[in-house]
Simulated scan of single mutants.
Amino acid sequence: MSEFNVKEIDKSEKPNGGSFLQTPFWCSFKARHGWTYRRFFIEENENKDGKECAVLNRNFCKGFFSIAYIPLFPKFKNPTEDFVIQLYKMAEALKPYLPKNTIALKFDPDIIFDTPELRDEFNKNAAVVSEKKHLNIKKNRVDIQPPDSTQVDLTCSVNEILEKMHSKWRYNIRLSQRKGVTVKKYTGSSVNLSEKVDKFYELTKETNARDGNSSHAKSYYLDLLKYSSEQISAGNDCPLVTLYIAEHEGEEIASIMTLFSHDEAIYLYGASSNKKRNLMPNHLLQWTAMQDAKEYGSKYYDMYGMPPEGKNENHPMHGLYMFKANFGGKNIHRAGTYDVPLKKSVYALFILAEKMRAFWHKVILKKIRGR
């Protein structure tokens, strides 16, 4: 089994490629909001196949302990259940570079399966290997990044992208246009940005009240837009973050925020009013962003999170599943978050608290709110 050599590096060779979560832009943005990060070049002894990655770290309980996190890394093209051994060895190689109070290293490995059943079977078998080898590597019940998504291919023509959509979705886009819905775009350099982020945040609160979700602070969204424009204006090759707002007769009724890089376009956040939903503004917003992403040069448009299944009309998230899946993308299913404990006793307490928090938000609060 391979061993790993680790070398700290100052900058990335692909600052605007690969997963946006690994870009210097995203990591430095997260550093403005409570995280720290360092970049490494990790080389596998067995085949000298080196890759760079970012490791983020965040303190909890006033610095009593911290969690390290590696998003969308490492990539496994042909994974076997022995990948937990590789995660363990990689964590051991990185451990000397982590803060002394780090209790666990969390991985979101870049492993993609065609069906949720294949993914679930893989995770089940990986747990058996971890137990057999006494590695104590855990598949976390709470995934940091959405493990299930759908990705629309942007490398084909505009007409081909439309043809892959469900016919009703093409109709909804045209309906929205016919009814007079327009889409306006704002970046961090827009003169009226603060006003538009205020509106986005109002719509976000309305959406949260309707769906029982939570969101970031308004300052987080504003800073994300501004920081992207600041970096681009400084001549840095970094992702473009854009705010789209759909309007009808002067009323702003829906909004999304996107991130475009050379490889991918990400639908980061979305919100909509309870009013005029029959005008299908969300369909037009997504289609406008997809066209812009294609022009930018992104290879695919990632809806960034959906239920693993939901075609059955009785499924509780049927509506969300159908909305995203019917844009004609390819559904993907990642393995999810894996934890490598470094301080087992403190980690066990952290996991207990994490489970209680998830139960409170996903069960208790939803029952209190009647959902």
Score class of each variant (00 low, 15 high):
Phe65Ile: 12
Lys218Gly: 06
Val346Ser: 09
Glu121Gln: 08
Ala265Gly: 13
Ile245Lys: 03
Gly18Asp: 01
Lys138Ala: 09
Cys53Lys: 00
Phe25Glu: 01
Lys299Tyr: 07
Asp108Ile: 13
Asp120Leu: 03
Phe65Gly: 00
Gly50Trp: 05
Asp302Gln: 02
Lys179Phe: 08
Leu21Pro: 02
Leu279Ser: 11
Asp82Ile: 10
Ile332Glu: 02
Thr150Gly: 04
Lys89Cys: 06
Tyr244His: 09
Ala353Pro: 01
Asn159Lys: 13
Asn125Trp: 08
Phe113Asp: 02
His216Cys: 11
Val363Ile: 12
Lys89Gly: 06
Asn172Trp: 09
Leu203Trp: 05
Asp82Tyr: 14
Leu98Gly: 01
Ala217Lys: 13
Lys133Cys: 14
Met280Lys: 13
Lys7Gly: 03
Arg334Glu: 15
Tyr221Arg: 05
Asn136Trp: 10
Lys95Met: 04
Lys179Trp: 09
Pro146His: 07
Gln291Lys: 15
Ser233Trp: 04
Phe83Lys: 01
Asp223Pro: 04
Val129Phe: 08
Ser214Cys: 11
Leu352Val: 06
Gln177Ala: 03
Gly319Lys: 06
Ala289Glu: 09
Arg357Glu: 14
Ala335Thr: 15
Lys299Pro: 10
Thr288Gln: 12
Lys100Gly: 09
Cys27Ile: 12
Lys89Thr: 10
Ala254Thr: 09
Phe25Asn: 00
Ser190Arg: 10
Ile266Met: 12
Leu225Lys: 02
Leu222Ala: 05
Val363Pro: 00
Ile161Arg: 07
Gly50Gln: 12
Asn312Arg: 03
Asp10Pro: 04
Ile137Asn: 00
Ile111Val: 15
Gly370Arg: 05
Lys124Pro: 00
Ile70Thr: 03
Asp302Ala: 12
Ala353Lys: 13
Ser149Gln: 07
Lys95His: 12
Phe60Asp: 09
Asn5Gly: 06
Ile368Asn: 01
Thr23Leu: 02
Tyr201Ser: 01
Phe25Gln: 01
Lys164His: 14
Glu8Val: 11
Thr337Asn: 10
Tyr267Glu: 06
Ile70Ala: 03
Ala335Trp: 01
Leu240Asn: 03
Lys30Phe: 09
Glu309Cys: 05
Ala127Ile: 10
Val197Asn: 06
Thr337Ser: 11
Lys362Cys: 10
Ala91Val: 08
Glu52Pro: 07
Glu251Thr: 09
Asn192Cys: 11
Leu243Tyr: 06
Thr150Gln: 04
Lys196Glu: 15
Ser255Trp: 08
Cys238Gln: 08
His166Lys: 15
Gly328Asn: 10
Ala246Cys: 10
Phe260Cys: 00
Lys294Asp: 01
Lys330Asn: 09
Ala91Leu: 02
Ser273Pro: 03
Asn16Val: 03
Ser19Tyr: 14
Arg210Ser: 04
Asp198Trp: 07
Lys7Leu: 13
Lys133His: 15
Arg357Leu: 13
Phe25Met: 04
Phe107Ala: 05
Glu46Leu: 14
Glu264Asn: 08
His33Cys: 13
Leu105Tyr: 03
Met257Glu: 04
Gly63Trp: 00
